[in-house]
Amino acid sequence: MSYLVSHPGRVAALAGGHLELVAVALAVALIFALPLGIVAARRPRLAPWVLGTLGAVYTIPSLALLAVLVQLFGLGFTPILVALAVYAQFMLARNVVAGIAGVDPAQVDAAHGLGMSPAQVLLRVEFPQALPVLIGGMRVAVIAMIAIATLGGYVGGVGLGVLIFNGLTLHQPQMIVAGSAVACALAVALDAALRLAERLVR
């Protein structure tokens, strides 16, 4: 922890970069996972294929995926951003499907029967009730993303991973400890924040 005490500014800047990386990746991930999840929820026969594919992608070792992405995008922010967004797909899409499937069918029948358009049924009835489940998926995804984002220190020079990888090359264990401890703290804090959000929308 001595590094944390001696270089608070540097650690804070890297933590900020780490958060920014995860936040942007989560936003990008949602742009894909929401429509994917909604389409899968509408077509029960398609759902296992979509989720199965995303689940398979999720099992690819992150270093291997990053190696491919670095080939495609070069070093920097982009490969780690794409990797995080790809990994989050499974957990986000799965929870969109579960959230929408979990809405009482009678409410959906009533919504159609009373004259809501398909978009209104989704936005006024299904999505609000699926939201806590989606946020639950975001919690799990964010914890995994914060851990995987440390690889950004290796391929992009961003985030708390910088401390970990520099500590490894420079044989400075206190740098590794500082990077890891702050990453853990971020994960715990974000989990708590999302848990609160989950409760608020319920």
Binding site: P105, Q107, D109, A110, A111, G113, L114, G115, M116, S117
Partner: peptide, 20 residues
């Protein structure tokens, strides 16, 4: 259909009040 349904009331056994 959407227009038609808005002019016709609909009540079902499971009620389906919107929980949100």
């Amino acid at each position: 259909p959407v227009e038609l349904r808005r002019g016709i009331g609909y009540v079902i056994q499971a009620i389906g009040l919107f929980a949100n």
